[in-house]
Design a protein around this nucleic acid. Structure first.
Lengths: 216, 216
DNA sequence: TAGATTGTTAATCGATTAACAATC
DNA sequence: TAGATTGTTAATCGATTAACAATC
């Protein structure tokens, strides 16, 4: 259905298009031109048209794009119309925050299980899910077949759990650890969130902006 | 001191270099060649040499790079040798997790204050910091002069607080909201973390991988 | 010295922007 | 029809990779 390979840069812009179109819809927009959308999003109209044309022809010459229809198309492209069961490994501070903060349904997922090895958190309730002992993970996976897992465990524990999960059919990871999943397992879908790295780049910007100002 | 403008792609790789070099150091490596580092990190040797050469000549022909020295240089480039005071706005699930999960010191920051407007969390202790009423933020900023703020508040509240913070001298934001800071304030350093967008791209990959396999 | 590996220039590749014919 | 705006091709820009002379 869709064209061959979509570049990473395009994929990363899709959720933002989806969000902006949702806002436009809420604000009563029925149509929008690539020029107007570009202005609002801080992109170029060319880029927007190129991006959409990776997936098909969603606009109409002389008119622009229908906001609701375009939003739905991008939602479909992102797979938000299909809900994938997902489990969370690690119910520490971060794991708990992710579990309660993220609106999984609207991102194409449903959180169906939470596992930890720490007795202090096993039994805790996060939303409507109770944290289970990680020893129960294997049998849970065999029953429920989650295709995706969130990794919120220490780096040292990651390798072992990832191998287990892959053997149980998990094929995608939302990875908050520093374990280098993509290097070890090339056939698996991985989305890394390296919060520490993200903060460090802010430190760079903060410190080098001054220099840059000095140079100009 | 440093060359004119460093591309975003290079900046984003710096924290990862820093991490890998730290691990190498821990494992007793004294020297490493670009070829060997490239292999470990899943990059090309060319790219690594190009990246480092943006900032200076850190290697030695015929030898390679001294691990400890290179790590220190990259740390300096990232500004990790200078600690910037930072405050957190929003002490909900995510704010609390960030405050307790992140090792600020090693990323060039120190968390010095946490603010929220919800009476239910004001007074809570996170680490050694007590959550203050957001009405106290202005006077706190005048005294302590934080240069950086973490935004973990609802999108609707962001615009107002950002304006306040900028007027108090805050010049960098670690932004977990969907408020489009970079478009509104172009002179400010911003690092966006859009967790929802990140998860949505994983949905895309999960659903399109199948298609891709079908096409090949 | 000979071997290794950098720093750096040149070549390639990919992504963004510009331009314009097609068409609503 | 005339005006607007897309879809798409061509031009430009930037980032990555390859190659190699410099040099430790």
């Amino acid at each position: 259905m869709s064209k061959n390979t979509i570049s990473n840069s395009v994929i990363r812009r899709l959720p933002r298009y989806y969000r902006f179109l949702g806002e436009l819809e809420t604000n009563g927009y029925v149509r929008i031109s690539s020029r107007e959308l570009a202005e609002k999003m801080g992109l170029t109209a060319s880029q927007i048209r190129q991006d959409f044309n990776c997936f098909g022809e969603f606009g109409q010459q002389g008119y622009g794009y229908n906001v609701a229809a375009l939003k739905m198309e991008i939602g479909k492209i992102l797979g938000l119309d299909q809900i994938t069961p997902m489990i969370l490994i690690g119910a520490g501070n971060l794991g708990k925050a992710i579990a309660s903060h993220i609106d999984f349904k609207s991102k194409g997922f449903e959180l169906v299980g939470i596992f930890d090895r720490n007795p202090a958190v096993i039994g805790d309730k996060i939303g409507d899910i109770t944290v289970s002992d990680i020893s129960e993970m294997d049998s849970f996976c065999e029953e429920t077949k989650p295709q995706c897992a969130i990794l919120c465990i220490p780096k040292e524990a990651a390798s072992k759990e990832v191998d287990r999960l892959i053997s149980k059919g998990v094929r995608a990871f939302w990875n908050f650890t520093h374990y280098d999943l993509r290097i070890e397992h090339s056939d698996i879908s991985v989305e890394n969130v390296h919060l520490g790295d993200s903060l460090a780049t802010l430190s760079y910007r903060l410190n080098s902006d001054n220099e840059t100002c000095g140079n100009i």
